[in-house]
Design a protein around this nucleic acid. Structure first.
Length: 529
RNA sequence: GCCCCUGUAGUUCAAUGGAUAGAGCAAGAGUUUCCUAAACUCUAGAUAUAGGUUCGAAUCCUGUCAGGGGCACCA
């Protein structure tokens, strides 16, 4: 990746300049390399001279000039030019020879382009959706589904062994409540058609057992099917009841007891989570003998880290569980796996109907199902819609406008670029791109397109590090834009055979990357539209 | 009351402390004898508010206002 090359060049240049005593000794600050917003500021840019200026208390502009000219020399095989700008930025402009060379790399790598090794084959699990099995998945769950699925895909691409998991909370009070609802007795709370269906189907009289049966049906006949409809393939479905039936939860509690982290108060057993930064201690066994959700969750994570040997676990939770983060993190630390768990909170999807805000609630029956959304706008548009938003966005969703908006979803813009390429390729089955012709690519639109292509691995790397998945659709749009502009400016099929061969190479590489990025997002890449 | 998240264009959202704050949709104007016009080009339009830190703040800190979510021996 060119960004790594620039990084190393900067480091090397500073060290040389220090050795030559042109710069005095100092610890090198963090080297940040970014994509400038304006093209006149180059393809990559760094503010390192501004930082050094601060440390040395010298003029940043002077440092930038000294460093810049050294980088120009050392990086001549990458850069057309290196410029220094205003307060002390150093701007890098990639040479067309370098871009042409990189294009050939993409063509050689094919589908493997963008496959990184930064994960070093470490095992990671992403757990997402994990909605209670008390009803169908909702629109809010679709957000978690898109986010988690794509994050796991990205980690895979970055070189982790990434797995996807759904934790089924089929134990505890909500199962009892579900049972009562199914039996339609005095303590019923959930309502809806699916409850009517379960009521007819389940003959069990004991409310808890009825609830367990109902949960199983909900998972098998509703949740799994909906996830499937969205193209999510889980590696593992873990049952909370399963954990309780084995002795795993008991063993987990025993372990905490041995460490002196469990005490009794008012008939219940408490875990001293406050010892690990939690604001209060948490109950793990209630006075009625039932274990709490946290007891099961700590056990679950022991299973993930010790039995399944995950080096890292990432949980995608709804913002309503923000208050539980500290408790679980304390538990994970207590069992000796500090730092291996990341929890990402997704802010809520607020449902609007016309102008009115609706609180989504299974109990109130005021929710829109994920199925309904998928049937109405399709998986591709649904995924893209949610992926574009960062985890912290409180997003507003208007089902009333969903259909209309989905027809204008940018996902089609990207798919259209792919279809256009396929359309050209269908016409030229006999002609192939040629390595020697690639040097003919020098039109600004051609070079701009290559620049977008080579960013792809960098986008993967950044996203695998900070989990900001909205970067993927963002880049896909930028890439499609560059392609559509190229399409306007440069005809692929012309009388000039050499140029045709060169441009075929370019669109083939573009096809590879677009298909790659769409597949990362779990979105189809149609050949015709 | 305490804790978490948010406030950016008419609207839905972007923007690792950087340079002239970007897109889509909506609004207005244009582009096709030529590989798919689901495209391209142009116009208009925004950092809630008051301070502070910094060479530089949408971004960091404090206050105010507004919104979402928590504060269980529910999960």
């Amino acid at each position: 990746m060119i960004r790594d090359e620039i990084f190393n060049l900067i480091k090397k240049s500073i060290k040389i300049l220090q050795k030559e005593e042109i710069f005095s000794k100092f610890g090198i600050p963090e080297i940040k390399i970014k994509y400038p917003k304006e093209k006149i500021h180059g393809d990559y840019s760094t503010n390192i001279a501004l930082q050094i200026g601060k440390i040395l208390k010298k003029k940043s502009m002077e440092i930038a000039k000294t460093l810049g000219s050294r980088l120009q020399v050392l990086g001549s095989r990458f850069f057309g030019k290196v410029e220094v700008a205003k307060p002390g930025f150093i701007n890098f402009f990639l040479s067309k020879e370098y871009l042409q060379k990189e294009l050939l790399e993409i063509l050689q790598s094919g589908e493997k382009f963008g496959q990184l090794k930064i994960g070093k084959n470490k095992k990671v699990q992403v757990e997402f959706i994990s909605a209670n099995p008390t009803g169908p998945l909702t629109v809010g769950n679709a957000r978690g589904g898109a986010f988690g699925d794509v994050l796991a895909n990205v980690l895979q691409k970055a070189g982790f062994k990434a797995e996807k998991a759904y934790y089924i909370n089929d134990y505890g009070m909500q199962i009892l409540t579900l049972g009562h609802s199914v039996l339609k007795d005095g303590e019923a709370k959930y309502k809806g058609k699916y409850i009517d269906y379960l009521n007819e189907k389940i003959k069990e009289k004991d409310p808890y057992k009825a609830g367990e049966k109902a949960a199983k049906i909900i998972i098998d006949e509703m949740i799994k099917k909906t996830a499937d409809k969205m193209g999510i393939k889980y590696d593992e479905w873990i049952s909370e009841t399963g954990l309780h039936q084995s002795s795993a939860v008991e063993e987990g509690l025993e372990l905490l007891k041995k460490k002196g982290l469990i005490y009794e108060k008012e008939g219940a057993l408490w875990f001293k989570s406050s010892k690990f930064g939690d604001e209060r201690d948490r109950v793990v066994v209630k006075k009625d003998g039932w274990k709490t959700y946290l007891a099961g969750d700590i056990t679950l994570h022991r299973y993930k880290f010790e039995k399944k040997k995950f080096d890292k676990v990432i949980n995608i939770w709804g913002a309503d569980h923000a208050g539980d983060v500290a408790g679980l993190q304390a538990g994970v630390e207590a069992i000796g796996h500090k730092g291996k768990l990341d929890i990402i909170l997704l802010q809520f999807v607020t449902l609007f109907e016309k102008r009115k805000k609706l609180r989504m609630s299974k109990r109130m029956g005021t929710f829109v199902t994920m199925d309904e959304l998928l049937d109405k706008v399709g998986s591709d548009a649904t995924r893209f819609f949610f992926l574009q938003r960062s985890a912290n966005t409180h997003l507003n969703f208007n089902l009333f406008l969903a259909k209309e908006q989905s027809e204008k979803n940018p996902v089609y813009y990207i798919q259209y670029a792919h279809a256009r390429i396929c359309s050209i390729l269908r016409k030229v089955s006999s002609i192939k791109y040629q390595v020697s012709s690639i040097k003919l690519l020098k039109h600004p639109s051609e070079l701009e397109l290559i620049k977008q292509l080579i960013r792809f691995p960098e986008i993967i790397e950044d996203t695998a590090k900070d989990y900001q998945v909205q970067r993927i659709p963002q880049h896909a749009i930028d890439l499609a834009t560059s392609f559509h502009q190229f399409y306007r400016d440069c005809r692929v099929l012309t009388e000039d055979k050499e140029l045709t061969r060169a441009r075929l190479g370019l669109i083939l590489a573009t096809k590879i990357v677009i298909k790659n990025t769409l597949s990362l997002m779990g979105i189809s890449a149609p050949e015709k539209m």
